[in-house]
């Protein structure tokens, strides 16, 4: 019986090590992301066929408001909008930047954070761009 008990404790210890090492957070993770830089950009960015930056930014703001965000900061020159909302007990913060791309297009990039985690899930961003498309009456185009 004693042997069996020891066996369980060893197993428990092993599981502890495994589950703790899964979420290691060294200081270098402050600048780290799970996806590659290129991949992340393509997930978070879409191009729109318009050059009206002001209208684009105001539509971004109104879309974020539709999604329950409270807008905290915005800067027209930089093209950035930052807002936050609550999802359950977690805070979601998102910043969106709008900038010129060539002569005829605007690039919109969104990046969101859920609690202490950066959101890198393509579908989540797709949800946002779908909502943005609807309010903008334009199609969001994937950028390579």
């Amino acid at each position: 019986m004693r042997k069996l008990r020891n066996y369980f404790f060893v197993l428990l210890g092993l599981c502890l090590v495994v589950s703790l090492s899964g979420c290691a957070t060294p200081a270098s993770s402050a600048l780290g992301t799970e996806e590659s830089q290129v991949q992340l950009r393509s997930i978070q960015t879409r191009a729109f066929d318009t050059t009206d930056k002001k209208k684009m930014m105001q539509t971004v703001i109104s879309t974020m408001q539709d999604l329950d965000f409270v807008i905290e900061k915005a800067d027209f020159t930089l093209g950035s909008v930052t807002g936050s909302k609550f999802a359950g007990y977690e805070t979601v913060t998102m910043s969106v930047t709008v900038r010129q791309r060539g002569e005829k297009q605007l690039l919109v990039r969104a990046n969101a954070q859920y609690g202490v985690k950066s959101v890198e899930d393509p579908l989540t961003y797709q949800d946002f761009f779908t909502a943005l498309e609807k309010s903008m009456f334009l199609t969001a185009q994937q950028v390579d």
């Binding site: 539709d66 999604l67 999802a87 977690e90 979601v92 998102m94 969101a112 859920y114 609690g115 985690k117 959101v119 899930d121 579908l123 989540t124 961003y125 949800d127 946002f128 909502a131």
Partner: peptide
């Protein structure tokens, strides 16, 4: 993060 928190 759960899915769908950026859906209206």
């Amino acid at each position: 993060a759960p899915a769908g928190f950026l859906k209206p």
